[in-house]
Amino acid sequence: MSALVIRDLWKTYRNGVTALKGIDLEVQPGDFFALLGPNGAGKSTTIGVVSALVRKTKGQISIFGHDTETAPEKARAKLGLVAQEFNFNQFEPVIHIVMNQAGYYGVPRNIARERAEYYLKALGLWEKRNHVSRSLSGGMKRRLMIARALAHEPDLLILDEPTAGVDIELRRSMWQFLRDLNARGKTIILTTHYLEEAENLCRNIAIIDQGQIIENTNMKSLLSQLNLETFIFDTRAELPATLQLNSPYQWRPLDSHSFEVDVEKSVNLNELFSQLSAQQVEVVSMRNRANRLEELFVNLLTENKKKAETDHV
């Protein structure tokens, strides 16, 4: 039984905008799944429809085998949502927010208190449990959203840009927390603008653009599509004005002491170093330039845009 199945999902808003145009998606239990796409692509609408905050125009959704139309209570009981915007009562104490959420799912008060304590401690918020939520920092509010979403122990956790605006240290600790949750069997669906985050955490990925899924595969096979890598080289001395690198290496200077080179996967780097040595260029460090997924992401969106323009013509 799949954790989430979406079939032919359409959503047209009252203003006539069609946000989703026949989405098909399937997420397996235990998966760590990335749903990526540019702003306005339809990610949040998809999540909204799955979590019953947005009414679908057409289509079918089931969560762990429970249809959201015919068995909405059972489907919702399986789902935990971390929304993109802070959507808790700003004047309510932290612990009440978590415990009340558990209560809405029918969790008895004593168990809700135990869970609130567990998750608030796990997310470093226990000391703030009696503070009203508006007094928390942005990072704490993000963690509170996660603690609240877990209060009823959902099997499927959907996080809509959970680390937006969170500093890198906190982001990494949240990644570890999510990895641990996933290791304990929770199915996680993540949308994010930090593609490094998706690459680090997720095993499978779907890319949505203009209301349609344009790629749905596993992370490894997606990354293997990338046949070009860009390396940055830092040199000890200033780059010689006469520096030239012959084919198959495409290069560009970045500043007086560094340059970048595009290298196809089938080509080795030995010849590149030979050419640099021959021109007395001493390399002191070298690194991969871009996030690989970011490159693929941009390529896919560009291709989709071109395709849409061609179809339009």
């Binding site: 905050l53 789902l79 949502l81 929304a83 700003q90 009340n100 609240r148």
Partner: peptide
């Protein structure tokens, strides 16, 4: 209205509350 305005009504709308 506060629950609507601050969006925390979503806590109930996403839950299986009749």
């Amino acid at each position: 209205f506060s629950a609507k305005f601050q969006h925390y009504i979503e806590e109930m709308l996403t839950a299986p509350v009749p």
